[in-house]
Every structure is written in structure tokens, then in C-alpha cells.
């Protein structure tokens, strides 16, 4: 694995940004400052971080309802993300999308998505556009284990394979489709075996090992850039929180969460960095403090921003038509 210390440090910062953003979002939801449906990525940080560390700004990603981590890892701005959670006009979606719909076209982020499995087909569309324009960009499609039971998974992987599109399908197998465990929603344990049905490479990696993810996705990205088609990569991981905030997680066997907390990807990364002289303890403390400040700044920005003007509800349905309002 070729990786510079600078890359490792950047990945570490991304991991912290995700963890701290999500932890703060959890608290803000509990305080009632953030509403709607919020699906947190805590515990899965290594997947988005390791995958996106291989990407350029002009590469694309599609994301899911649990999208904050992907967006941060692809370069999304914490301020605009937080402002969107706060429903503010300065948010990524001007308060029209919320947590599940954050997008940033300038960073190739084709959106989080509220429909499970919808990103598969959109990612294939991005891959088609790349192939059509004959560039060496790629699209990484993030999705969960349960979405591989949707028809879109089959349609997308089939088309991506037969057309050799530059799409990397990254499955975050966190063991659950909402409350239903993988053993109860599909008769396989490794999602990667499904790749064989499409004659594409399928690999399973430890999704809590950021370097394992980085390496597997890196290889797939480099193939895709050379026109060698798609890859399915399954990253085994676990979400620490419920499906959404407010989920009492009664479906989890006792001790399961604790087992996974012991596999926390962040201390694992810190251990590697300390042992390999990439970082010192003091630098870890400084990085943590810096990211804490970024989160604080994002929150202040969100708090101080205005709610969207009512007329804005009528805009952006079309590029050229403003819908009619109502008189109250």
C-alpha cells in the first residue's frame, strides 16, 4: 500500500470530523435543535474515509439516507451541512432537503438519498456520463447491505458490468436493514458474492480498518480509471446508533454493540499512526481540538443563519418556472 503521511493525517482528520459532527448532531437532536429524520454514521467512519481518500474533486459519489460521513469525506463543508440540519437558508439545500438530501455538485456529491437503493442507478448514470465524455473520472456508489435486495442493485450492477462503467459499488454492511438483521433479510453473509452474478470482482474487507478500505477501493478506482469496469466492495462495519435517532434498538442482541465499540476504527487508526511515527500524542490532541473548533464554528454559523423565506418554497422546482403561492 502506497500512502504518504500527509494522506494518513488527512484521513485521520476526516474520521474525526465525521465522528464529532455526528456526535454533535446526536446531541442537537436530543436537545430539539435538529429535527426530522437523522441517521448517524458513528462507527462506520472508516468506510467513507478510506473510500473517498482515493477520489479527486471531479470524481462523483452517490450516498444514502446515512450520508453525512460520505459528504464530509468527499469534501462537503461542515458549515453548510450543519445549517441544513438546522433548516436554514444557508444550508446546502436552502432548507429544502435536510439530513437525507445533502448534495454538493461542485464536489461531485450527487446527493444523499431518502430511497433505499436509489443511488445505484444514479451512480450508473454518472458512470455512463464519464464513459460518454471519455474522461478518467470515477463514481463511488455507497449503499447498505439491505439495499442489495432492491431491484435497483441488480439493474445497476448488471448494466455497469455489461457496459464496463467506471463505478465502484461500496457496500457498507452494517448488519441491519433498519431493524432486520442481515441473517433475516438475505440468505448470504458476504454481499460481495453477488458480484459473481455480474462477472465483476467482488471483495470483502474489514470496514473498520480504514487502510483496508483505502487499499481495496484504490485498486478498484485505478481499474475503473483505466476503463476496466466496476467492482463490488463490501465493507463489514456496524452502526453504533439506531437506524435513526429515536430508534430504541430493541432488536440488537445484548453485547453486540459493545463488541463493535471495541473495534472502533478511530483508536485503531491512532494506534497505527503512533506506532508508525505518523503522529504524536500531542498532535492527536491538537487535531481533536481543531476539529472540535470546526464543529463549533459550523454550529454557530447554523445558529446565526436565517430560516428560509417562504417564497423560496416555490423556487427550484424547475429552472424556469416559479410555482404559485398561497394567500394567508
Amino acid at each position: 500500500m502506497k500512502i504518504t503521511n500527509e494522506q494518513v493525517n488527512n484521513m485521520y482528520e476526516t474520521m474525526l470530523k465525521i465522528r464529532k459532527f455526528e456526535t454533535r448532531a446526536k446531541d442537537l437532536f436530543a436537545e430539539g435543535k435538529v429535527g426530522g429524520f437523522v441517521h448517524l454514521y458513528i462507527g462506520e467512519e472508516a468506510v467513507a474515509t478510506g473510500a473517498c481518500a482515493n477520489l479527486r474533486d471531479d470524481d462523483y459519489i452517490t450516498s444514502t439516507h446515512r450520508g453525512h460521513g460520505h459528504i464530509i469525506a468527499k469534501g462537503g463543508d461542515l458549515k453548510y451541512m450543519m445549517a441544513e440540519l438546522f433548516q436554514k437558508e444557508t444550508g446546502y439545500c436552502k432548507g429544502k432537503g435536510g439530513s437525507m438530501h445533502i448534495a454538493d455538485a461542485t464536489k461531485g456529491i450527487l446527493g444523499a438519498n431518502g430511497i433505499v437503493g436509489a443511488g445505484h442507478n444514479i451512480a450508473v448514470g454518472a458512470g455512463l456520463a464519464i464513459q460518454y465524455k471519455k474522461t478518467d473520472q470515477v463514481c463511488v456508489c455507497f449503499f447498505g447491505d439491505a439495499s442489495t435486495n432492491q431491484s435497483t442493485f441488480h439493474e445497476a450492477l448488471n448494466l455497469a458490468s455489461v457496459w464496463k462503467l467506471p463505478v465502484i459499488f461500496v457496500c457498507e454492511n452494517n448488519g441491519y436493514g433498519i431493524s432486520v438483521s442481515q441473517a433475516r433479510h438475505q440468505a448470504i453473509t458476504d454481499v460481495s458474492v453477488r458480484a459473481s452474478a455480474y462477472n465483476m470482482p467482488g471483495v470483502t474487507v474489514d470496514g473498520n480498518d480504514v487502510f483496508a478500505v483505502y487499499e481495496a477501493v484504490g485498486e478498484a478506482v485505478s481499474k475503473a480509471r483505466k476503463g476496466q469496469g466496476p467492482t463490488l466492495i463490501e465493507c463489514k462495519t456496524y452502526r453504533w446508533r439506531g437506524h435513526f435517532e429515536g430508534d430504541p434498538t430493541v432488536y440488537r442482541p445484548e453485547g453486540e454493540l459493545e463488541t463493535w465499540i471495541k473495534k472502533d476504527p478511530i483508536p485503531r487508526m491512532e494506534k497505527y499512526m503512533l506506532e508508525n511515527g505518523v503522529i504524536t500524542k500531542a498532535e492527536i490532541d491538537k487535531e481533536n481540538a481543531d476539529v472540535d473548533n470546526m464543529i463549533k464554528e459550523a454550529e454557530v454559523f447554523a445558529e446565526e443563519s436565517s430560516m428560509p423565506a417562504l417564497e423560496s418554497a416555490l423556487e427550484d422546482v424547475y429552472t424556469d418556472i416559479v410555482e404559485e403561492g398561497r394567500v394567508r
Binding site: A118, N121, I122, V124, A126, L128, A129, E155, A156, L159
Partner: peptide, 23 residues
């Protein structure tokens, strides 16, 4: 020509349009 896959026909139109084509 596409496979008989209406979901990905429309979905790929969405994705490719979002990436600058006019499908």
C-alpha cells in the same frame, strides 16, 4: 441499446443528466 431494465434506464438518465449530458 439497454437491457430490459426500466429502473436503470430512467435512473441512468437522472445520473447522466446530473453529470452534464442531455439524455
Amino acid at each position: 441499446d439497454t437491457p430490459i431494465s426500466e429502473g436503470v434506464i430512467i435512473g441512468a438518465a437522472v445520473g447522466s443528466a446530473a453529470c452534464g449530458l442531455r439524455p
